[in-house]
Each structure stands twice: as C-alpha cells, then as structure tokens.
C-alpha cells in the first residue's frame, strides 16, 4: 500500500461541455466524498443540471474525466492505469473503478451504481407505486429470471428474488411513509409524495452515489423537513453518498457536508456550508452588487418565482 491519498468517491476533472458555440460547463473540477452530502448550487443557468447529465451519462462531455471509485483504497495509479488502458471500467477484488464519461447512461446506473432523480419528476405514472420500485430492481431480477427463460417456467430462484425485491420495496415504502398507497398509480400521488417516491425508486437500484436534481422544489416546509431526515438516513445508513442540486438554501445549509458553487459553468467556490456563506464571490454571484435596493428586488423576484413554482409547476 503506497502512501497516496485516498481517492474520493467521485472525482470530476476539467469537465467542459459545449453545445455548439455555447459553453455550458467550463473546466470544472470537484470531488464528492463517501458518506457525505455534497450540494451543487448556483444561479439559474449556471450549468448544474448539465453537470448531472454528464455524470449520469445523458450527455457526453466535450472534455474531461469523471471517475467513480467504489473503494477508498483505490489509488491515483489505479485510475491512471484504467484511463490509459482505454477500458470503461475495472473491477478487481470488489474494488470497482469507473470512468463515467466513457459509459452509456444505463451502464452508469447498472455497473457504476450511480442513481439519479429529475428536476421535473419522471415517475412511471401509469404504474403502481410498488411497480415503480420493482422496475428499479430490473437488472437483479433479470438475472434471477435467467433472462426471462427461468421466469417463464416459474423457477423458484426467480420467485425468491421477486420476494426479496418486494421486501426491499416495502422497506423504502415504510421509510417514505407510502406503504398504504403501494397499489395506487404513482400518478395519483400528491406532489411531495411523488418526489419522495422518485428518491426511493432511485435507492432501489442500490446506488453508491445518488444524484438529486432539486429534490425540495415545490415542497412545503413540513415536507422539506421530512426530506432532510430522509436524505440524512440515506447518507448514514446506506453507504450512499449524495450529490444534490438545490435552490432552497435552508435545505442546503442544513444537510450538506460540502458545497460546490457554480456560476456560468465555472466553479467559484468550494467548501463547507459556513465557508460558502461568507465567501464574497458567492454573495456577489447570488446578489449581484451588494446594495440594499438590489437585495430587496432579488428577494421579491425569488418570492415570485417560488410562488410560480408552487402553483404553476404542475
């Protein structure tokens, strides 16, 4: 074992994403650590969701490396070796190392164990709550069903796997308080429940990194508090680190261990919540020039916008 520093769970280096002439992300580097909640914040249009889409494989970055190391003992040497080999991932002695920018989106979830939610909730509205959680365990069930062949003949192995999948689903249903609504269509749930269900669904894939795109958007204060509890439980009890985009500063400051601030696609600050709160660059980015009048105007606009989000988003 060399004396090299431990590798964080997620290491983003020199990430750049261009759409035609538009530079959405400009040479962004940051890391997300195991057992932590990392928040990605920044004004509208700063490129936060684009970063998510690059990490989860929905976009292929123009430039940059996005590495995910399941095990803390992974070293920089391992990473360099994998990068030079041209492979997409390597898994030896249970130490998985993945280059996300090389992998297609579904593989990132299936192999690298990165799950995500969406800004505008994407549940399977015509399927029941339970079905949503079972579909999330597709790959494990597919294997157990012998790629359908064993399942068709009704093999015991598949039945057991399905029972286990239902158990896992019930565990999450209990945690988000939706057990009684398990057999209702997901589209019938109220907004806040849909948000939590989407998080539970992502957790059913068994992720090491959970990416949440504005999980508190449109929630009332009570639901927001429940969300904080849920996210902490995920971090503490499930060996899952969280990367989240959030506008609601109460959520960000309350639960994150580490905050990365973006503006115009570039990182302007990186540190603990208290560090961020007092960073002049962040204050300038959020409030523009530090004048009372502008501050008031901003607050008014924010208020208007959140009002619109609450009323008009659905």
């Amino acid at each position: 074992m060399s004396m090299q520093a431990e590798m964080p769970l997620l290491v983003v280096e020199h990430l750049t994403m261009r759409f035609g002439g538009l530079v959405a992300i400009d040479d962004l580097s940051f890391a997300a650590h195991r057992g932590e909640i990392t928040a990605l914040i920044g004004p509208n249009g700063a490129g936060k969701t684009t970063v998510f889409n690059c990490i989860t494989g929905f976009y292929k970055p123009t430039v940059g490396r996005i590495a995910l190391a399941h095990d803390a003992t992974t070293t920089q040497t391992d990473l360099d070796r994998l990068t030079n080999s041209g492979d997409r991932w390597r898994k030896a002695d249970g130490r998985g190392l993945y280059l996300l920018e090389r992998m297609p989106d579904y593989e990132i979830t299936a192999k690298a164990k990165v799950a995500r939610t969406f800004q505008n909730i994407r549940l399977f509205t015509g399927m029941t709550v339970l079905e949503n959680l079972i579909v999330a365990q597709h790959n494990a069930l597919m294997r157990a069903s012998g790629w359908t062949v064993l399942g068709l003949v009704g093999a015991r192995r598949f039945k057991e796997a399905e029972r286990a999948a239902v158990e896992r689903a019930t565990f999450w249903l209990d945690l988000i308080g939706l057990t009684l609504r398990a057999d209702d269509p997901a589209g019938d749930l109220p907004y806040g429940d849909q948000r939590r269900l989407e998080i539970a669904r992502a957790m059913c894939t068994g992720p090491r990194l959970l990416c949440l795109d504005e999980p508190a958007a449109g929630l009332n204060p009570k639901e927001s508090l429940e969300l904080n509890t849920l996210l902490r439980a995920i971090r503490d009890d499930h060996d899952t680190a969280i990367l989240l985009i959030e506008h609601d500063m109460s959520v960000v400051m309350e639960i994150s261990d580490h905050v990365v601030v973006l503006e115009h696609g570039a990182k302007i600050s990186d540190g603990t919540p208290s560090h961020i709160k007092n960073d002049p660059a962040v204050i300038a980015a959020y409030l523009g020039v530090d004048e009372d009048e502008e501050e008031a105007a901003e607050a008014e606009i924010e208020g208007l916008q959140s009002g619109l989000d609450h009323g008009g988003a659905r």
Binding site: Y106, R122, L123, F124, M127, E131, V135, H138, A202
Partner: peptide, 24 residues
C-alpha cells in the same frame, strides 16, 4: 416478469428507464 415490466416502464418514460439501469 422483469422484461414485461421493463416494456411497460419504457412506454411510460424511456429516460427514467435509462436512469434505472435498463438497457432500453
């Protein structure tokens, strides 16, 4: 079976399927 549920999930939302690790 999982394959049939994946079909229906695909009909509901393909992008969500991909985010759940389903090879669409």
């Amino acid at each position: 079976l999982p394959i049939g549920r994946a079909w229906e999930a695909l009909r509901e939302d393909e992008i969500a399927c991909r985010s759940l690790g389903i090879d669409t």
